[in-house]
Design a protein around this nucleic acid. Structure first.
Length: 272
DNA sequence: AGTCGCCTGGTA
DNA sequence: TACCAGGCGACT
């Protein structure tokens, strides 16, 4: 499940591996991920173009391609972006392949087919881009801004953390981890958090995201880096996925509930 | 704010 | 063999 740390890891690797490469062919084995334009049009616009840069916004990877082309890629739950030699065996779910003049491929692989691609000629033309909230690691995202976001919102804090239009990049894993580290119950209405708790949560959030990036993300589900390697942060997760287990801090039994349709674990003793 | 649908593979 | 996971958009 790629969230901010996983997407950031992929972004940094792609920056090193594919900037400057020229696309000689776009192979579409499954058109479904291509939302717009029509697959044939996308092919036409990208063929024989150079990759100029790679950006990340929330959980989106953005490839900047010669000729005013911005390709927004969302990996959703099981998407992978792998760079490898073009003559290697084609993976079972390799839906879209960008074949470079150098003999390398960038392959978009997605078991569950939820991932998406949108090609636009200006960043702002991708409507979702304009609706994304703060990047939690950006220096402009400080205590004051975080307080403003929580202020007056009755939403449960975990759901607020995962609302991409407020803060962009946090998903189920890191929301749960940050709340555990900060000792805050996922059920607390956002507006009821005390200043001291908001401070703690912000520090936990930034800290965990940075650590996870250092470990190249968590390989929950089938996330891998652009080498096809797993991340190493999965072993550091203290609360996510620990259904029916005991709290790593106090030893009491963890609570497993559904929140906004998503599985949520927390320790009722350590998280208030 | 809650629910559904999109998907496949692992698990009860 | 039925069910569940889950980001996000669409819908209510």
């Amino acid at each position: 499940m790629p969230e901010l740390p996983e997407v950031e890891t992929i972004k940094r690797e792609l920056e090193k591996k594919i900037v400057g490469e020229r696309i000689k062919e776009v192979i579409i084995n499954l058109p479904k991920p291509i939302k717009r334009p029509a697959p044939a049009e996308l092919k036409k616009r990208l063929t024989n173009k150079k990759i100029k840069g790679v950006k990340r916004r929330g959980k989106y990877i953005i490839l900047e391609i010669e000729g005013e082309n911005f390709l927004f890629i969302h990996l959703k739950l099981t998407g992978q972006l792998i760079v490898e030699k073009e003559n290697g065996p084609i993976e079972k779910h390799a839906h879209i392949i960008f074949r470079f003049a150098s003999g390398k491929d960038l392959r978009f692989i997605d078991l569950r087919r939820f991932g998406t691609m949108n090609l636009v000629d200006r960043m702002e033309k991708f409507s979702t881009y304009n609706e994304l909230g703060f990047d939690p690691l950006d220096s402009s995202f400080n205590l004051e801004k975080f307080k403003e976001i929580l202020d007056k919102r009755p939403t449960k804090i975990k759901q607020l953390l995962m609302n991409q239009s407020l803060i962009a990049g946090i998903g189920n894993i890191y929301a749960a981890e940050a709340l555990f580290r900060a000792g805050i119950s996922p059920l607390r209405p956002a507006k009821r958090l005390k200043d001291s708790e908001i401070k703690k949560l912000l520090e936990a959030l930034k800290g965990i995201l940075k650590e996870a990036i250092r470990y190249k993300g968590s390989s929950v589900d089938n996330y891998v880096t652009t080498d096809g390697e797993e991340g190493d942060y999965e072993d550091k997760l203290l609360i996510y996925g620990r259904d029916k287990k005991n709290c790593p801090k106090c030893g009491s039994r963890l609570e497993s509930i559904k929140l906004g349709g998503r599985g949520t674990n927390y320790c009722p003793k350590c998280q208030r």
